[in-house]
Nucleic acid binder design. Structure first.
Lengths: 173, 173
DNA sequence: TCGAAAAATGAATAAAAATTCCTAAAATAA
DNA sequence: TTATTTTAGGAATTTTTATTCATTTTTCGA
């Protein structure tokens, strides 16, 4: 808290005027950003697009948001998986709930894609998990790396793997 | 440390006979398990199999290992992404290096698959990242959930998404 | 069985870090 | 301008938790 106060050019005690305590401060920051990306994705979902384009546009949205907020995502990624916090009380729970809401929206998009015949008949929740998994992995790699490339440039690769798979067509019976 | 000692039925001080300190204890445990799975995967890579079967068998190996060590992976998953530790010193670094070695092996398998024509021509590193991403996502979901299903049962789904993608064939031009 | 060496113990210590709270500064109203 | 309320500051306090170390217990060879 001393260090945060110093960097923010505040007195240590002043932090406690704005936040209940350390955890509250921490989760307020997380929540603010999560709220922001949630709103953006929500707006995108409002548009009437074919499922595949919808997924593509959500993907672009996310990648560019992450690229613009790289320091935040360094924290968020580790947070999302940190059970110590997540489990303990409702502060962490809120973040987890927003992530679940996101998965649910994705699942719904997948369901529409299946209904419309654009996507294979498969559990839409599994599809959603597969998708976020691929995305997370590229995001994680990008954050860890010395960032010599643009994250957004991976969008096409992600789409290709997720929609078309990596197996060569000529091996298909 | 007091709590660990209590649960392990040791005196607090005794822990310091076996470990340098808290971090050393922690990473020793992580390292032990990571070593174990690394050995198993290494043995599997030694076998002479076609790339796709190879990936399938590594996947099965991993999923059943994770299923058998669920409490450990609860910790490991959050660890792998926790920059606070990872960055700080060489204890955490060791774990990260072993993960990278795993990615490198996967990349090599992908490369062979491309050379043999079974897999599409695509950056093999991207392929490797896509694969671990999908796997991680299902593992994460399984660990978080009340575990009403077997993790190993997701193997086929993972293989399908990764190799064949989710787009319905009939939409392909 | 005895005695020396090794191992275990946990209360005491030290270090780190969160929170409080009293004082000082700033803002606002009369 | 002065009085009053509100906000900021940071040293002091409290809490937490890792580590130490003097003491006890166990082990094991003679």
């Amino acid at each position: 808290m001393d260090e945060i106060a110093k960097r923010a050019e505040f007195g240590t005690g002043s932090l406690y005027k704005y936040f209940q305590g350390k955890r509250d401060l921490y989760f307020s920051l997380i929540d603010e950003k999560v709220e922001e990306i949630t709103r953006l994705v929500g707006a995108e979902l409002g548009k009437d697009l074919p499922p595949i384009d919808r997924i593509a546009s959500i993907l672009h949205l996310q990648l560019s948001f992450i690229q613009k907020n790289r320091d935040f995502f360094k924290i968020y990624i580790s947070e999302r998986n940190c059970f110590q916090w997540t489990m303990k009380d409702d502060l962490g729970n809120g973040v987890h709930e927003k992530f679940m809401a996101y998965i649910n929206s994705l699942e719904e998009v997948m369901r529409q894609g299946i209904a419309g015949g654009e996507l294979k008949v498969m559990d839409p929740r599994d599809m959603a998990h597969g998708f976020v998994g691929i995305v997370n992995s590229f995001v994680f790699e990008w954050i860890m790396s010395p960032r010599a490339y643009s994250l957004a440039s991976k969008a096409q690769t992600i789409m290709n793997i997720f929609f078309k798979g990596v197996r060569s067509p000529r091996t298909r019976r």
